[in-house]
Structures are given as structure tokens and as C-alpha cells.
């Protein structure tokens, strides 16, 4: 294992991120958004990097969490911790359903199914506008309060999200280090063999989906409270695409790569969209470049830099030159 992949180092980097973001960013909203997407992207990575499932449907769970928070907070004044827990449970339930149906097909069919399901849930939200607010979304989602104090200022809500982020990240690190996580890797590497040993591989995949869906919906709920709206766009195809793009750009070989992916994308989007409304054109080119030149993502780049600067001995993948 690469030294940077050690669980303690991964978690340490996450803590560092939480501490460093306020020093560099003036916008508390942007910093909070980065943390929310960081956990959502890490959940996508649990599927892509650890289980080998490329899900084009993560926006479903994000949107479900967003609407759950929107409905509970604007109509029924449910306490926020309950809303977050409820979103996660609902996200897990829907992810179980979507996962159960999607893994009936493999490879590219699986990917196409997850994309089609993301359309299904989008049109559901669009059609049942009495519940979801349709195109307008649900307006006036309040921020949480803690011990009587409202967390309305961006940076105080940042702190709230940061605690959630670190807890979720720690859980995901533990999941990937557990026997369960190792089994997921075995399924990714060779599903036939994992099944032959006696692992119920389909059950494991569905469980991975459930965990991923729970975390994603949790993030969706936090996002609704951040922007004060539960918008239709959170359940759109575009959100699913966004989460997947962040995951691949960050690199799917480590959970912290996902934090890098989310941060890189959102900072780039923030900088470019202010300059040029058609910046997605540049993003398209970045995606092509990542596929051609940076297949292990930003995390791969970090690993290579670390090896070049800090490790004197030749890395084991490259044999020493013979004379």
C-alpha cells in the first residue's frame, strides 16, 4: 500500500482540508459546498473505485435527500438531526431499489440503466410537482440551529457541515478498511472468483449501493439547507454527471482523491463561470485530457509527486534499470 493510502493519513488529510479551506476561501458558501460534494463524491467512489460499479444515478439519491429535507423543513418543522437521519435512510432504501434493478445487468448495460433511472426519478420529481414544487423547487429551506443559536452565517453553517463531513469520511474510511470493504475490492477485481469462494456478490453490491445512497442523500439534505432551496436541478441528469466527473477527476483509487476531485471541480467552476458563461466547453476538454494523460486522476498526481519528493528508494512498480 502506498503510504498516503493509510487510513490515518487519509483522515488526517480530510481534517487538514477542513482547517485549510477557511484560510484560502472568502466565500463560506463555496467552502461548505466543497465539503458537501466531497462526501457525496467519496460515496460515489465507494461504488466506482472499490466495487467497480460506474453509477450514473448518484443524482437520484442527492435529489431524494434534497427533497426529503425540503419537505420536512418547510412543511412540518421536523428537527434537523432527524431530517438528516431520515434522508440517509430514505436514500439507502431508494439506492437499494435502484441497485437491485441495475445490477441485474452488467458492464455497459448497468451504466445505461443507472442513467435511465436518473431520468425516471427526474421525471417523477417533475411530474409530481404538488410534492416537489416542480420547476420552482421548494423555497425557504431554513438552516439548522444549534442550542438555540441559528447557524445562518455561512461560516457557522460551514462548521456544522465540517463536523458531518469528518464523521462521514471516517465512516467511509472504516468501511473500506473492513472485511466488507476488502470483499468489495475482491468483487471488483474478479467477480466470478469472489462468487466461487462463496460470497453473495449481488448482496454485497446492493449493500455498497445502500451505503453510497445514504451518504449521498445526507449530502443532498445538507445542500438544500445550504442554498435555502430544494431545486429540481439537484435530481437532474446533470447532477449525476457532475458527481461522476468529480469522482473520476479526483481519482478512484483513494477516498481522499474524491475530496480533491470535488474541490478542483467546484473551484474551477467558480473561477471560470465568472469569466465565461460557456465554460463547460473547457470542462469537456479537461475531461478528454484527464482520460488521455491523467488516468489515475488528481490523486495519482499527488502520489507521483510524493514519490518524487519524499521517497528516495525507487518505487516498486518501476524495476531498476539494468546496465
Amino acid at each position: 500500500m502506498h503510504p498516503l493510502d493509510k487510513p490515518a493519513v487519509q483522515f488526517g488529510l480530510a481534517v487538514l482540508t477542513v482547517a485549510v479551506l477557511p484560510l484560502f476561501l472568502t466565500s463560506g458558501i463555496l467552502a461548505t459546498e466543497i465539503l458537501i460534494f466531497a462526501m457525496v463524491v467519496a460515496a460515489c467512489n465507494l461504488l466506482l473505485g472499490y466495487t467497480g460499479l460506474l453509477s450514473f444515478g448518484q443524482g437520484i439519491f442527492f435529489g431524494v435527500g434534497t427533497y426529503a429535507a425540503g419537505i420536512c423543513l418547510t412543511r412540518w418543522q421536523v428537527p434537523v438531526p432527524l431530517v438528516l437521519a431520515g434522508s440517509a435512510i430514505l436514500g439507502a432504501a431508494i439506492a437499494t431499489l435502484v441497485g437491485w434493478l441495475s445490477i441485474r445487468r452488467q458492464g455497459v448495460y448497468f451504466v445505461m440503466l443507472t442513467l435511465a433511472f436518473s431520468q425516471l426519478f427526474y421525471f417523477m420529481a417533475y411530474t409530481f410537482s404538488g410534492i416537489t414544487g416542480g420547476d420552482n423547487g421548494l423555497l425557504g429551506v431554513p438552516r439548522p440551529s444549534l442550542g438555540g443559536a441559528e447557524l445562518n452565517a455561512p461560516w457557522s453553517y460551514y462548521t456544522y457541515v465540517a463536523v458531518c463531513f469528518l464523521a462521514i469520511f471516517a465512516i467511509l474510511v472504516m468501511v473500506t478498511q473492513s472485511t466488507f470493504g476488502r470483499t468489495l475490492i475482491a468483487i471488483r477485481e474478479n467477480e466470478g472468483r469472489a462468487a466461487a469462494i462463496g460470497f453473495p456478490t449481488r448482496l454485497f453490491k446492493i449493500e455498497a449501493f445502500a451505503i453510497s445512497g445514504a451518504v449521498t442523500a445526507f449530502g443532498g439534505a445538507l445542500h438544500a439547507m445550504l442554498i435555502g432551496v430544494a431545486p429540481l436541478s439537484n435530481i437532474e441528469h446533470h447532477t449525476s454527471e457532475l458527481i461522476l466527473i468529480m469522482t473520476i477527476i479526483g481519482g478512484s483509487s483513494s477516498l481522499f482523491g474524491s475530496v480533491l476531485g470535488a474541490g478542483f471541480y467546484l473551484l474551477l467552476a467558480d473561477a471560470l463561470s465568472a469569466v465565461w458563461p460557456r465554460w463547460l466547453l473547457l470542462l469537456g476538454l479537461v475531461l478528454v485530457a484527464v482520460a488521455l494523460f491523467l488516468q489515475r486522476g488528481l490523486w495519482g498526481l499527488v502520489e507521483r509527486l510524493y514519490d518524487a519528493v519524499l521517497r528516495r528508494e525507487p518505487s516498486p512498480t518501476k524495476p531498476a534499470e539494468e546496465h
Binding site: L54, G107, V111, E241, S252, L280, L281, G284, L287, Q295
Partner: peptide, 22 residues
């Protein structure tokens, strides 16, 4: 990119779709 895993086929064609749309 044919020899790469299908993750990258998807990444590149999603990128192309964005470029064309914009």
C-alpha cells in the same frame, strides 16, 4: 482510448458531448 477501461470511454464521450452542446 479504445484500450482503456470503459470508465474513460464514458469520460471522453461525456466530455465531447459537453463540448458539442456548448
Amino acid at each position: 482510448i479504445y484500450k482503456l477501461p470503459h470508465t474513460f470511454h464514458i469520460l471522453v464521450t461525456v466530455g465531447l458531448a459537453l463540448v458539442i452542446q456548448e
